[in-house]
């Protein structure tokens, strides 16, 4: 029993890692640009398909494929910012609708390019870090955990310690005041969109060999990310990370001891309860919506 608990705990840490990468990107985009990016799950999928194309089909080394995938998805983010979110800045519902349109485009591009069926990706490594006989952490999952820690720390450093980071946080807090201080809102929006998308991309790329890659995989990712950012408080990066961890533990444990659909119901109910009791989220204070 202790071993089962420990193993489930490890699984939850892995889940928390990629969920937080996705959710933090979503929060960053929402904070700086004020739009809800419904296509975020499809950016995750695009990262996964980059690994399918480069690593599984063209035999590029795995980490090179991940890096290219991350950059590619970041560029997709820039494209979205330029083509959709910037022209629709004054239309609050517009950005959301446009991102749904973009989601459908990405999804059907994946269907046309790769087919509807699940992709098979050869495992990157079969090694497992063993703690006891029954408790182990596959190294491929360890990569995801390490990536989450590294990228999120780097983001934290960037936001809190660099001038660009300050500018980004300033324009998230008050775009007009930031613009008056000479900060280019367009520039900060571009940076936020690139980082946010790239984080989703790297999460998708790294988890590609571990999950079933298919054109509709983005759906459950975006639902999870929404739950997490609502529970964590919309606009709060720290909240998103803490909520990712909390959600991953609840979801993984309910899945292990009962079943996956029930875990989804529990997750969504948690979100609904948070929305009812404390709409600003458990960790959120400022409220932009």
């Amino acid at each position: 029993m202790v071993e089962l608990l420990a193993q489930t705990g490890l699984n939850a840490v892995y889940a928390a890692s990629y969920i937080s990468l996705v959710a933090v990107g979503l929060v960053l985009i929402f904070g700086v640009m004020g739009v809800v990016n419904f296509a975020h799950g499809e950016l995750f999928m695009a990262g996964a398909y980059a690994v399918v194309a480069l690593y599984a089909d063209m035999h590029v080394p795995f980490f090179v494929a991940v890096a290219i995938g991350m950059a590619f998805v970041g560029l997709l983010g820039l494209l979205m910012e330029w083509a959709l979110f910037r022209p629709l800045k004054d239309n609050p519902l517009g950005g959301l609708v446009a991102s749904i349109g973009f989601l459908m485009i990405l999804q059907s591009l994946a269907v046309m390019g790769f087919g509807v069926r699940m992709e098979h990706i050869p495992p990157v490594t079969q090694e497992v870090v063993r703690f006891t006989d029954k408790v182990g952490l596959p190294v491929a999952r360890l990569y995801v955990i390490v990536a989450a820690v590294v990228f999120l720390s780097a983001l934290w450093y960037f936001l809190k310690r660099t001038r660009f980071g300050w500018a980004l946080r300033a324009s998230a807090q008050d775009p007009e005041a930031a613009a008056l201080q000479g900060i280019s809102i367009t520039q900060t929006a571009r940076i936020a969109m690139f980082i946010g998308a790239a984080l989703a991309g790297v999460a998708g790329a790294l988890t590609a060999p571990l999950v079933s890659v298919n054109p509709h995989m983005g759906h459950s990712v975006i639902v999870t990310a929404f739950i997490v950012i609502i529970v964590g408080g919309v606009g709060s990066l720290e909240g998103a990370i803490l909520a990712s961890i909390a959600y991953a533990f609840v979801h993984t444990f309910v899945t292990t001891f009962w079943d996956g659909v029930l875990a989804d119901i529990v997750g969504l109910s948690l979100m609904l309860i948070v929305l009812i009791v404390k709409p600003t989220g458990l960790f959120g204070s400022a409220d932009r919506a």
Partner: peptide, 11 residues
Amino acid sequence: ARPLIYGAIMI
């Protein structure tokens, strides 16, 4: 290509 065209129309 239907979802693609639908998405494009939406945008």
